[in-house]
Design a protein around this nucleic acid. Structure first.
Length: 576
DNA sequence: GGCGGAACTTAGTAGAATAACG
DNA sequence: CGTTATTCTACTAAGTTCCGCC
């Protein structure tokens, strides 16, 4: 078959094949196609790459850059100095004032010291890193001031590195690697109130590295004088390189770029699963509403949790090991203290007030009117419990997902987020797009639809530091234009040229207003995450085709590469 | 079921690159 | 053309899911 072709053009054939399938997205067709290519969990047949790029070795500080302990100059050993520089580089950051950060840092730093240093340096507060810090600031300033030629040289070196290490060959396709550089050593910066913040992330050596590639490929050589930890040939996984990180003891991977076949296919599959949910979501909703009445507490809890996941797009919420990570929760791990019940609030009945920290310690705050049965169940679940007790004490993600699997093949909690995000975009686009609008106004509508999803998924960002100023700048452009318009309108018998000029200015003015509105509404909302991970790109592609919007207005270059499959397959009548 | 490990997706942010401005 | 605002990319942390073992 065409898509098994090994020729250079097979990439195009592959996409065409996807396009063909998209018009007949039956499960048999796809599994047939997948089986042909990769029987039972086989991810590739050939994989060749150059291995990772290691962090540059530590360069000791120049002699004249001093570290002071208790007011006196102290020369540090190379190892201790390196760790000290990590701290010095973060001196301006709030992190370095936090008790936990300082405690963790100091403990790990001491491990790198010589016994002499260890006996001298016993109090972090007596350490003076300011000179080191100033040196680094000067360095980064100097980097900014570099000449064009010097900057060009660095750029070329980066390009060389990318060219040599940034690509691999997987099944006859040259693919871009997402992260071919090994994470450099430094101080761990967790998000939120992380118990391990400030700990030393150690330097990764070739001896830590597991290489994964095919037997018949050219195996990447370790750096001279070094050995890999292991070379394996596991084609049931997609990663090229892995190592174990020392903070949480978890495994890190080097994998392919989102533009790669293997990621694109998976992404497509994800949206197909969400579309299958669309077909049975009504039935599932009826089912969980029935389950609210169940005799079994476990079933009731499951049904209420699922209602939250569906209605509020909450994450599943796995249990976490206490003291290992920041205290954050998702649906199944909600505690009594995270919700407040209001039989009546602001004229609404049965309101649940949510207030908890979710992924990345982003706060979820929401007041939601729920159905009476849900409310009564919640009261029941909270009876005789302490604030720190689990709300759903008979439930976890594994129980929930097992149940979901029974309702639909491939259904898990996160599919609801994908489904609700994508269906919301589609609905909002239908509702908000005004056919008579010009392109900028239509794009504003698109962004608003996107924003509705971001709000649903609680995708927040810190307001940009220059937000107020940039708003002012934008506003200040309006009066001169308006004035110009006032002049242009005055003569009653305006020439053809003048009319055109007026029209142009009106357009500019309108564009400006649209821009200002968009920016204001976007202050604390991050659109990127939903765009990249939750919205079926075919919805956006179809919308662009339908309204004659250039796809570049919606997706930048990287995004177009990631969504190449969708851009190729979706027609203007695509329905999620 | 409970647990730990492995693999993979999803997440916000810092800083680089690029565009807009004067 | 240099400076500043905005956009994009790289980075890596933090989730979810699945699987094998007891």
């Amino acid at each position: 078959m065409a898509y098994l072709s090994t020729s250079e053009s097979s990439c195009i054939i592959y996409y065409n094949c996807l396009a063909l399938l998209s018009r007949h997205p039956g499960p048999d067709v796809r599994s047939q196609w997948e089986e042909e290519r990769y029987p039972e969990g086989i991810k590739w047949k050939f994989l060749e790459h150059k291995g990772p790029v290691f962090a540059p070795p530590y360069e000791p500080l120049p002699e004249n850059v001093k570290f002071y302990y208790d007011g006196k100059v102290m020369k540090l050993s190379t190892k201790a100095e390196e760790v000290a520089t990590f701290f010095a580089k973060m001196l301006d950051h709030e992190y370095t004032t936090k008790e936990i950060f300082r405690k963790n840092f100091f403990k790990d730093w001491r491990k790198e010291m010589t016994s002499e240093e260890k006996s001298t340096i016993t109090n972090l507060s007596k350490c003076d890193f300011t000179h080191m810090s100033q040196y680094f600031k000067a360095q980064s300033e100097a980097r900014k001031q570099m000449s064009k030629e010097e900057k060009q040289k660095i750029k070329e070196e980066n390009e060389r590195l990318l060219k040599e290490y940034g690509y691999c060959v997987m099944d006859n396709h040259k693919e871009r690697i997402a992260n071919f550089k090994i994470e450099p050593p430094g101080l761990f910066r967790g998000r939120g109130n992380h118990p391990k913040m400030g700990m030393l992330k150690r330097r990764i050596m070739p001896e830590d590295i597991i290489i994964n590639c095919s037997k018949d490929s050219k195996i990447p050589p370790p750096p001279p004088g070094h050995k890999w930890k292991e070379v394996r040939h596991d084609n049931k996984v997609t990663w090229l390189v892995s190592w174990t990180e020392n903070i949480q003891g978890s495994i890190k991977y080097i994998m392919l770029n989102p533009s790669s076949r293997i990621k694109g296919e998976k992404d497509w599959q994800k949206y197909e699963t969400a579309r299958r949910l669309k077909k049975c979501v009504d039935k599932i909703r009826n089912q969980y509403r029935e389950d609210w009445k169940s005799k079994e507490m476990k079933v009731r809890q499951r049904a209420v949790a699922l209602y939250f996941i569906d209605k509020l797009a909450l994450r599943a919420g796995n249990e976490k090991e206490e003291g290992e990570t920041a205290d954050t929760v998702g649906c199944c791990s909600l505690r009594v203290e995270h919700i407040k019940l209001h039989p009546e609030l602001d004229g609404q009945e049965y309101v649940v007030e949510f207030d908890f920290l979710g992924k990345d310690s982003i706060r979820y705050y929401n007041k939601v009117p729920v159905e009476k049965r849900v409310f009564k169940n919640l009261q029941l679940f909270m009876e005789n419990k302490q604030p720190e007790d689990d709300l759903f004490d008979r439930l976890n993600t594994s129980i929930l997902n097992k149940h979901l699997q029974d309702l639909m093949e491939g259904l898990t909690a996160k599919v609801f987020r994908t489904y609700n995000a994508s269906i919301t975009l589609q609905q909002q686009l239908k509702e908000l797009t005004n056919p008579d609008d010009n392109i900028p106004a239509k794009i504003l509508s698109y962004n608003r639809a996107n924003r509705a999803v971001a709000i649903l998924c609680n995708h927040q960002r810190a307001p940009p530091k220059t937000f107020e100023k940039s708003m002012m700048n934008l506003q200040s452009k309006v009066p001169p234009l308006a004035q110009l318009l006032g002049w242009g309108r005055a003569p009653s018998a305006a020439s053809q040229d003048k009319k055109k000029a007026v029209q142009r200015i009106e357009e500019q003015l309108m564009k400006l207003e649209v821009q200002a509105t968009d920016r204001e509404e976007n202050k604390q909302i991050a659109l990127g995450t939903s765009k990249l991970n939750y919205l079926d790109p075919r919805i956006s592609v179809a919308w662009c085709k339908k309204w004659g919007i250039p796809i570049e207005k919606i997706y930048n270059k990287t995004q177009r590469e990631k969504f190449a499959w969708a851009i190729d397959m979706a027609e203007e009548d695509y329905e999620f």
